[in-house]
Every structure is written in structure tokens, then in C-alpha cells.
Amino acid sequence: MSLLTLENVTLTFGGVVAVDNVSFHVGEGEVFALVGPNGAGKSTIFNLISRFYNPVKGDIRFESNSILKRRADQIPTLGIARTFQNIELFEQSTVLQNLLVGRQIHARNGLFSQMIFSPSVRDEERRHRAVVEEVIDFLELQPYRDKYIAGLPYGVRKIVELGRALATEPKMLLLDEPASGLSVEETQDMIFWIEDIKKQMGITVLMVEHDMNLVSSVSDRVLALADGKELAIGTPKEVQSHPEVIAAYLGTSIAEEQ
């Protein structure tokens, strides 16, 4: 069954067509990767799903309902969590606090009972904490639990952001370049985690990634984009050997024209 569907989505900035009539769907439990050279429109598609941009044409559906009527802050409550290419964390808070903020969409008590810290609020906080601790164990973040983000190395921040997304207990995870800036070992860890997220947690993953090793190890299907247009869709192998994809990356099409 298809969890996320994009249908003829087009986005323009002035005269520039950033996303040109793109359609694809991501099935439940699938790991789906968007690849393509810089400026292909990959992150723009993420920002469309995240509702930072409004498409000029087309529809985006999640669990068969259009999300175009939702505001950006309502997207996580639908079950879509996201990480950013340039890491957006609460820098002056600890790792634990960052993950706990991810739980707030599940907070159910009223303002007054929260302020007097009533027994039901305390119970709820314990449950949030339990979920967060599971995420910390899963991503092996124990040594950093009470450290401030501002003092953490890049690779760890990247994992904390993944942790915050997981703490929201999403149905779908959008990963914007999960391996960028990571060392070889850290990328290897990321591959294992994405596999576990898919297999153990049953979370659907949509990602943008340049590291073809990571893409071909974890993705079920890949969509290649260039200049906002779809080039090819299929298994990682099929897409990697597709002549138009190779042309887009290496620019041979221009050479042929000449």
C-alpha cells in the first residue's frame, strides 16, 4: 500500500521550475531514495512534503489524504518526522531535552495540570522518558544523554537529530542527506540503523542521499532527478546504470549534442 503519494507536483520560483511535474509513491515499509546532482530539486521535494513550500500544481497525499491543507507544524502529528541536511537542533539544550521535545506532540494534559505537575502528567512524562530511553539505547547515545548540543561533534549531532525524529514515533521518516559529513565508520553505522528502522520498527523511510554506497545498501527503490524532472525510477542498480542518469551526473549529453 502506498503511504506517501506525489502526483504531478510542480513548484516554481519566479521563472525557475524547481520541481517539474514529479509523481512517485512510497510504499509502506519501503526505503525510498531520491538521488540527483545539486539543484535537482531533492531537498525542495522534502520542503514541499514538510509544507514549507506550496506546490503551484499537483497534490501530495499521506495515507490517502491530501496534506496540502495542513500547516508545517501539523505534519509531525500526522506521523511524518524529518532530519535536515544542515542539522536543526536546540543547541542550548541537552541531548535528552532535544529528544523529549520530540515527544511533546503526544502530550495530552491541559496547561493547568502540567503546571501543577499532576500525577497524570507525571505518568505521561515517565512514558515519554521510557520511549526516549529506548531511542537512546537504540542509537547508542548514552554517553551524551546530558551533554549540551553546542558542545557535541558533528557526527553525534546528526545521530541526535535522527533520535529526535524517532522519538516522535513516526510512520514515515524523511532523512535529508543522513550520511553527509559522516566518516566511513559513521556511515556504516547509519546503514545499519536505517536497516533496523525499516525492519525492526517498521518505519517507512524517504531519503535524499549522495553516497551511492549507502543508497544501494539500504534502498528498495531509487528515483533519480535532474533539473526538477524525473529521470529514472527503479532498483538502485537499474537507476545507477540508466544512461540518462549517468549523463546527468557526468554531463555527457551535452558532449553528444556537440
Binding site: 507544524d73 518526522a81 535536515f84 521535545v101 496547561l111 502528567v121
Partner: peptide
């Protein structure tokens, strides 16, 4: 107490630290 315990108070602190991230946890 408001800033320490309430969802709204935490949301205010989160929004002050990083607006983009705040959107992404539903604020």
C-alpha cells in the same frame, strides 16, 4: 513552573532556540 513543565512553555523555549526545528517537532 510554566517554562519547566508546561507544553506551551517548552514550545516557547524551543521556538526561541531554533524555529525550523521547532516546526519539525510540531510547534
Amino acid at each position: 513552573v510554566f517554562f519547566k513543565h508546561s507544553k506551551l512553555g517548552k514550545a516557547m523555549q524551543a521556538a526561541s532556540q531554533n524555529q525550523l526545528a521547532a516546526y519539525y517537532v510540531g510547534i
